[in-house]
Amino acid sequence: MEKEAPSLDLILKGLWKENPVFVQLLGMCPLLAVSNSVKNALSMGLATTFVLVFSAALVSLLKRLIPKEVRMGCYILIIASFVTIAEYVMQAISLEIHRSLGAFTSLIVVNCIILGQAESFSSKHKLLPSVAHALGRGAGFSLAILCMGIIREVVGKGSFFEIPLFGEQYQAWTLLILPSGGFFVLALLLMLYETFSKESG
């Protein structure tokens, strides 16, 4: 086995340098669909990170027991269980959040970031590094979806966390909250990321 990188490095890498969204273009579907308000974005980021970390931990603990032939099935089974758990916990905390995310909570199952984590990292590494790696990727995803949520809510609705920011006369740019706005804001963020990461080398 290769030499394990220190855990903090793994987290930071997932957050910026190897950000799953900006660099690898994974997890696009929830990123675009539920980033129309800061609250939704935050809930989605947290739920995804929860599933990512726990499924990574379990996969890495069970890696010796999972035969190669059925590994995909096993990963999906583990991930789907944690998604269901996340769904129930979310419903118990707040029905309103669960409603506003709708079917997209269940759709965390097919988020490629999670399956990718299980397949290419957790199945080959020990518990601690894979949890750290998963945490980093979860944070990276949350960062991206939060950026989207903040831009879309502040510009598109003139509020932050449902608190009005600009007063009555602000003419909200509603387009950004509509589906097409998701595409535009993501395109903008990708361009910004490109520019910044080029400058920093």
Binding site: L178, P179, S180, G181, F183, A187, L190
Partner: peptide
Amino acid sequence: TALTLLVAGILSMSFM
């Protein structure tokens, strides 16, 4: 990708 996304955004607008 950015270009594809922009095009998709305009498409989505027209589907509205």
